[in-house]
Write a protein that binds this DNA or RNA. Structure first.
Lengths: 225, 225
DNA sequence: CGACTCATTGACGTAGCTCAAGGTATGTGG
DNA sequence: CCACATACCTTGAGCTACGTCAATGAGTCG
């Protein structure tokens, strides 16, 4: 049974050969470059060959919400034919140097209508994204910030750039921006997990040393069993 | 430029003839029946001929979050091949008597892969749903409950079962369940709008008498201009 | 007419925000 | 390789928006 993912990777690797054969341009981005800028509507679709990108949403009051991470073997963002106002508040930036295949919106939609498997895979991908957003907007909203944090750490252990071996590469600020809370509040909740010997905080990353105890705090919706 | 919608209707009306020609069963639901029950994964897709359905998510603490409304000429829920845990917490109930066309998941996916226009329309529909959820999880979260409420009223005026003529058919409890706040807090914020002569509260519905003033309270992201 | 369901209002507690002052790794340039 | 800057983390004190609990009022329906 599938649980939410903030980190997307490998979903489209089976289509690498096919995508190479389709009309595209190859591009590279340097760490910090913007793949998708504020004020832009979506006009391109990227297939990521290497590197990681981060998508976030800017609120008019200046606060930033981190929405998702995108890495090797996945596409981002999906193509569609509509213009949403909210797209103007979204930006995607490269967290590391990146190599991508770039497709135009129209070409990609054509490809979907031609390649049945790619189409089904894309639909599944949309469903996965909706799953994450439903989890955030309908489930996490009802949890206390401490539970929210435990859930997030657990989800990143299950599925993240290097989440295995109990390692989570997020700063406290990142965590706060994912959970829409203040850095101070994130720190306080992390301090509690530290005091309970469930995590060891480091600079820029967190080590989980008692997964069982962490799991015990997570909400039902978060656990894959 | 498109703003979020809680109320879906008419998106697939162009496909009525086509859908009728595809393998399906015709079904009716009585007011209060469940189209999608708690604990169920998605296995069917409905095209709604008449009536309104409401989709909501149950939190393990008992609180309910209303996610969206679905009516004539639209399909619900989309089809995909995955199993998400969160689907078990979702239910969809008929708010009125309903007539629908019912398709199996597999048949519907086949139809998408066969009918190019239906496929593109479905992709747009997914994007529209993602737009709503992004708005909730990344934008509304940062607004005060008063602004959240103003935004919601505005959005329902733009797009709702009978949102025109300044009429919004929602109880205070509905509003609270959409905005993930308590009934009491919703009532207090409505009282403020009443005191400022922007709305006239009624039993089970709300009348907006000063749209300009309401708009002035809305966040940028909410306004279609 | 009585029994709902829905709306209103008050009193009070608290989670999480704001403001603020430090502490400690990491990187850089002299 | 040390001095210094910069980012990141920690902790405290006070405030406030929102939740909780509770009582009352006001439409609607069988």
């Amino acid at each position: 049974m599938l649980i939410p993912r903030y980190y997307f990777a490998h979903d489209f690797e089976d289509f690498y050969e096919y995508l190479l054969a389709c009309p595209h341009t190859r591009r590279t981005f340097r760490k910090g470059d913007l793949l998708w800028n504020l004020g832009e509507n979506v006009t391109r679709v990227y297939y990521i060959l290497s590197g990681i990108a981060l998508t976030s949403l800017e609120h008019e009051n200046g606060l930033r919400k981190i929405s998702s991470l995108h890495s090797t073997g996945t596409i981002f963002p999906g193509a569609h034919r509509l213009r949403f106002k909210i797209e103007h508040s979204i930006s995607t930036s490269a967290l590391s140097d990146m190599e991508v295949l770039c497709f135009s919106n129209e070409d990609f939609l054509d490809m979907l209508c031609t390649n049945r498997e790619l189409n089904l895979c894309t639909i599944d991908w949309y469903a996965t994204y909706i799953n994450l957003l439903l989890y955030e907007s309908a489930h996490q909203k009802y949890n206390s910030s401490f539970i929210k944090l435990c859930n997030l750490l657990y989800l990143f252990l299950q599925n993240s750039p290097r989440g295995k071996e109990g390692r989570i590469d997020l700063t406290q600020e990142n965590i706060a921006e994912i959970l829409s809370m203040t850095r101070v509040n994130a720190a306080r909740n992390l301090a509690r997990l530290r005091d309970e010997q469930i995590i060891v905080p480091h600079r820029k990353w967190i080590q989980v040393i008692d997964l069982k105890a962490l799991e015990a705090y997570c909400s039902e919706e978060t656990l894959s069993r």
